[in-house]
């Protein structure tokens, strides 16, 4: 619907990115990026946090002290740093309602939560940007159909679609990724389309066409790299919102099954224990979610500012 108006849709990001330069980064650009990043305190911290999370996710089995699913009912709900009879601290972050090690679960949780976040964004991003580029490139009827599909998707409250699909397919990591990914394609499609329309008439595209390059090749080689930058910015914000969405769905009982540790799942499970005083169940996964989302947002902000020449240097 909004297509009827000549404006850019800008979910999740400031207006700046949409007018930003979308040239392919050259060597000097990378250098500038490195300089700009190192000069800023918060983004570098955010990057560091994300790196730590990524390490946890990738090397989870190697670094986690215990099997995250190993239960011990007699050791349930131990507070953090409780020492056993031998004075050894077996569970640095305590145990949950089934006596499982929170630290190990949080480490494994990083794996699933981040994987869900990134995979969903990759799916949504690829689907959305391809459709957006196709729509923008060909225009006409193709454009109409794709944008009408986008309208249907937008008008369909995302949460209802998600709940429906998860109820139908059953909760599971794969289904969750699929539905959270598909739910986002419109954002990418609209931006990719807008950018493509702007690029379509540019000289280098004309040149490629005149030497007889195929449409697919032009879209992949000439247009895609030039619309990539703003999409990356949106992606960084979207990873954050997918991680939050996963938590909310866990609360509604539609997240991944409780046998698979995720941050959102652990947090949602902890709510029955809060009044009982077992704060550690909530605090650690909560901190993990907040830090990750915060870092992704900070980094996303930085990328956006960096890409926008008019904000540069402020």
């Amino acid at each position: 619907m909004t297509e009827g108006v000549q404006k850019q849709p800008i979910p999740n990001v400031g207006v700046a990115v949409l007018h930003g330069s979308a040239a392919q980064p050259s060597m000097s650009e990378w250098k500038r990026a490195r300089k700009s990043l190192l000069g800023a305190r918060w983004p570098i911290l955010a990057l560091l946090i994300l790196l730590i999370m990524a390490v946890m996710a990738v090397f989870g089995p190697q670094i986690s002290p215990r099997d995250p699913n190993r239960q011990s009912l007699i050791e349930r709900l131990k507070p953090p740093m409780t020492a056993n009879a031998e004075g050894v601290v077996a569970y640095p972050l305590g145990t949950d309602a089934l006596g499982r090690d929170i630290l190990s679960r949080a480490i494994y949780g990083a794996r699933v939560s981040l994987a869900v976040g990134f995979a969903a964004v990759v799916i949504g991003g690829l689907l959305g940007s391809s459709l957006g580029i196709i729509a923008g490139y060909f225009g006409g009827r193709v454009d109409d159909i794709i944008m009408r599909l986008a309208d249907i998707q937008l008008a369909f409250p995302f949460i209802l679609l998600t709940i429906m699909v998860l109820v139908v397919l059953g909760p599971g990591v794969g289904n969750l990724v699929l539905v959270l990914g598909i739910g986002q394609w419109v954002t990418y499609a609209r931006i990719a389309r807008g950018q493509t329309i702007a690029q379509r008439e540019k000289e280098y595209v004309e040149a490629a066409r005149s030497i007889g390059a195929k449409d697919l090749r032009i879209m992949l080689r000439s247009i895609f790299p030039n619309v990539l930058a703003p999409l990356i910015v949106i992606a960084s914000f979207n990873v954050a919102s997918v991680i939050l969405a996963e938590a909310s769905l866990s609360f509604l009982g539609l997240g991944v099954p409780p046998t698979v540790p995720t941050w959102g799942g652990i947090l949602a499970e902890s709510r029955d224990n809060l009044l009982g005083g077992s704060w550690w169940l909530a605090v650690f996964p909560g901190i993990a979610i907040m830090l990750t989302v915060l870092s992704l947002n900070i980094l996303g902000d930085w990328v956006r500012d960096f890409l926008d020449p008019r904000l540069r240097g402020r």
Partner: peptide, 16 residues
């Protein structure tokens, strides 16, 4: 899950 008293946890404990 979501039907009997603490069902998801009881089921996981039985599995263990």
């Amino acid at each position: 899950r979501g039907r009997y008293l603490n069902d998801a946890n009881v089921v996981q404990a039985i599995g263990q």
